[in-house]
Amino acid sequence: MILHTVNKPPSHAALSDCLAVMASDDLMLLIEDGVYCLHEVSGDSRVHVLTPDLEARGLWDRLPAELTAVDYAGFVGLCTRVDKIKTWA
């Protein structure tokens, strides 16, 4: 089980590259500019979003219901649930 972190907006290839290889039981965390991808992955319950980055970009009230918001402690928690981490940047 892999945690995929994405830190680029949808205009970059990071998100689509990640989605192309992500397994059904993997997890995704949108961080930094990756939080702009939230509409592209709405409905995908594997996806988590880092709250401070969401707030910094003025998107805190746009989080789709199926996605899970996590704080920094939650980020650490996700890391402990997976075998490894893959960064898409």
Binding site: P9, S11, D33, Y36, T51, P52, D53, E55, A56, R57, G58, L59, W60, D61
Partner: peptide, 23 residues
């Protein structure tokens, strides 16, 4: 242009990051 419009989104709250809201 492009992703540049993101700079103008209202209500950016950067207290949780090390960046500054200059919007």
């Amino acid at each position: 242009h492009g992703d540049g419009v993101y700079q103008l989104i209202r209500d950016q709250r950067s207290s949780g990051t090390s960046t500054r809201d200059y919007s």
